[in-house]
Computed example of a mutant assay.
Amino acid sequence: MPTITLVQGDITREHADAIVNAANSSLLGGGGVDGAIHRRGGPAILAECRRLRAGHLGKGLPTGRAVATTAGDLDARWVIHTVGPVYSAAEDRSDLLASCYRESLRVADELGARTVAFPAISTGVYRWPLDDAARIAVETVKTAGTSVAEVRFVLFDDRAHQAFAARVG
């Protein structure tokens, strides 16, 4: 099991082998974490995303899956893009949210990444309740078979930090 650390701050300022992007399925940038990573990482990330879309991801990246690109100008080697589910009170999509973390760690293992920085996936515009998202994220990372040595959850504000801290223990 990787060491789990919590940081309150801006994920685009993290130094890690891989930074996880809470992307949309187009991979072409967006708001929130996605927009911040594309802005700070520069045009190299978007260029690789466009190549992926022109190739085997012509219809976009499916929810719960992950793919890596360069990290461009970020202080990392790679960005691992994953598409979180939109929260629904009528349908249990927690398996898709857990898959974002599992798939990102699988890609990190393929790359040889030892440190991975995650945002709180799906808790922004996708409206996943923060406490439940923290539970799913931490349980998934704790039970994932991975060679990653450190998983760092980089949380935007105090409320998110507290929700994750309650789960890490």
Rank of each mutant, 00 (worst) to 15 (best):
M1L: 08
M1Y: 02
M1V: 14
T3G: 00
I4A: 01
I4S: 05
L6C: 11
V7G: 03
I11W: 05
H15P: 00
D17Y: 05
D17A: 07
D17V: 11
A18M: 07
V20S: 02
V20R: 06
N21E: 09
A22C: 11
A22S: 14
A23Q: 08
N24F: 04
N24A: 06
N24R: 11
S25T: 12
S25G: 11
L28A: 10
L28P: 06
G30P: 06
I37M: 10
I37H: 00
H38D: 00
H38I: 06
R39A: 15
G41D: 09
G41A: 10
G42L: 08
A44I: 03
A44H: 12
A44L: 14
A44K: 10
I45E: 06
L46E: 13
E48K: 01
E48T: 10
C49V: 05
C49D: 07
L52I: 03
R53T: 05
R53A: 01
G55E: 15
H56W: 06
H56Q: 13
L57D: 02
G58Q: 11
L61M: 08
P62K: 07
G64I: 05
V67D: 03
V67W: 08
T69R: 06
T70R: 10
T70C: 11
T70H: 09
A71F: 05
G72M: 06
D73K: 15
A76F: 12
W78Q: 04
I80M: 07
I80W: 02
H81K: 11
T82E: 05
Y87G: 10
Y87D: 02
S88R: 15
A89C: 01
A90Y: 13
E91V: 15
R93M: 11
L97W: 04
L97A: 04
S99P: 01
Y101C: 09
E103S: 15
S104C: 11
S104A: 15
S104V: 11
L105A: 05
V107Y: 05
A108I: 07
A108T: 10
D109G: 00
E110A: 15
E110L: 13
G112E: 13
G112K: 08
R114E: 12
V116R: 01
V116H: 00
V116K: 04
P119S: 06
A120E: 06
I121F: 07
S122R: 12
S122Q: 04
V125K: 14
V125N: 14
R127V: 12
W128M: 00
W128G: 02
P129M: 03
A133L: 04
A134C: 03
A134W: 05
R135Q: 11
A137N: 04
T140I: 12
V141T: 08
K142G: 01
T143M: 00
S147E: 14
E150S: 12
V151G: 08
R152A: 10
R152E: 10
R152S: 08
F153W: 10
V154T: 09
R159E: 14
H161L: 15
Q162Y: 00
A163V: 05
F164W: 15
F164I: 03
A165N: 11
A165W: 09
A166L: 13
V168W: 04
G169Q: 14
G169E: 13
